[in-house]
Nucleic acid binder design. Structure first.
Lengths: 248, 248
DNA sequence: ACCTAACTTTGACCCAGATCAAAAACCGAA
DNA sequence: TTCGGTTTTTGATCTGGGTCAAAGTTAGGT
């Protein structure tokens, strides 16, 4: 699997790659110092389960590097991905004891963790943390609702295009490559993980990716490396209106 | 349509039916007093659109009485409900200018509104409001994710049973009638609204309701009045595990 | 290099739910 | 109490995506 970075954990918050996007983004120097004393790093290998749904959670934290999925499973094994956790995303819910979802690392991953109790304590005393967490939670809620439209009303082809668009957009944001040039990225997900995200079977995912490729909407080198020659075209295929609804 | 309460707006926060569940739930007397000066009531008729997606929003607020839906629409008219707004639910997003969804009153409805700017101002100065809003947003995020599983992985029959279970549970919570007795409630939604919620056609909704009725899972008087003789049975039909995952 | 296990693609067939169509039930207004 | 529009039910048929099966591809380990 992808093993992009065997990053050593940053020793200091000042060096942290997610410093300005994570739950600590608004903290002042003194607040950061307090957090610094609370935090510890944990590494997970690709494929490793971070938390099982229903388990007691003794920590919350942020994804520093790598990618994880948030999934829900029914007794008969049907599973639905309900979130994709990227660097800076927050894991866990302050004020809740039991995990509501499975969290699985899909690449090697490093998390910046805080024991739950002290973090909750600090959150009560530090509006900057609670404010940022609210903002992040509202963003996640918007993303979840956007995904409800995808799951409830889009065709298989539109679903695949929507997923590609989301990943492409994220990469465009990170790499600042401008949206007019061809966008190039690696799919972080297996076909099976995509099917869990999109509410499809992996066979349908494979077929629709082949179809989009045949129609020139995307270009593949290998199974995972994707080029999008025309982002507008991809958005049309996704059924989104042309501006894509991105907000600051 | 349902016209349950032609409630006069409560003149004072002390009399407010949603005082202890809404965004103001944690406010102290002095904080409440400040909010009181900011607030104004607006009434909407059944069927009236409260906000159009994309519109500038000059207010945020709480549903006091009545029910509204939050929907997303594609250009070709496909629509997906992404939330059901019940009394005490919050409408609008502090820090965002344009509405992201359509909000439509489906019964007569009264909202307690605040002009957005002053409310944001007050939120910054009043941790109790921000804390409660965070809590409510986290709950909504959980609800949205539960719904992603319904939309992505459940069959039509399971979807209907899931919807009934959600409404039944809400009524059980409000009416405190105990979960062992038969549960009785009125569907607040038309078949079409249900189909928009569940990602189905209204014909399929109708057929599956008939099927659940024939199989004795639910009982109907008229089109809207539902009796659930055995809630456990309903949960099985919904594909949920028996405990239903309710948390405080 | 080769082997193995995981991942991916492709094909053939089927079915749950969509679509198209029409009848029935309901509700409020005149 | 009847009328007209809305909501709901039911029927017939079609189809997108699921299921089952098998073959192809890829990457890491020895």
């Amino acid at each position: 699997m992808l093993n992009e970075q065997t990053t050593a954990a940053p020793r200091d918050c000042g060096d942290c790659p997610i410093r300005h996007r994570a739950v600590c983004a608004r903290c002042e120097a003194d607040e950061l110092k307090r957090l610094d004393e609370l935090k510890y790093y944990r590494s997970f290998e690709a494929g490793q389960t971070v938390i099982w749904s229903g388990d007691h959670m003794e920590f919350v934290g942020s994804v520093v590097t790598g990618i994880a999925t948030l999934t829900q499973t029914m007794e008969d094994g049907r599973t639905q991905m309900v979130g994709l956790l990227l660097p800076s995303d927050f894991v866990g819910r302050p004020g809740r004891d039991a995990a509501a979802y499975n969290v699985v690392a899909i690449t090697d991953m490093v998390m910046c963790c805080f024991r739950k109790k002290p973090f909750e304590q600090m959150m009560n005393e530090t509006p900057h943390i609670a404010q940022r967490l609210l903002e992040m939670t509202l963003d996640e809620l918007d993303a979840a609702r956007e995904w409800m439209l995808v799951l409830g009303r889009k065709t298989a082809r539109e679903k695949i295009a929507s997923l590609m668009a989301i990943i492409a957009r994220r990469d465009a944001t990170l790499n600042l490559a401008g949206i007019d040039k061809p966008i190039v990225f690696d799919l972080p997900l297996t076909r099976e993980a995509m099917s869990d995200y999109l509410g499809l079977t992996l066979e349908t995912v494979s077929r629709q990716i082949s179809a989009l490729k045949k129609d020139g909407v995307i270009h593949l080198q290998g199974k995972r490396h994707v080029t999008v020659p025309d982002f507008e075209r991809l958005l049309e295929e996704a059924g989104d209106d042309s501006d894509g609804g991105m907000l600051a």
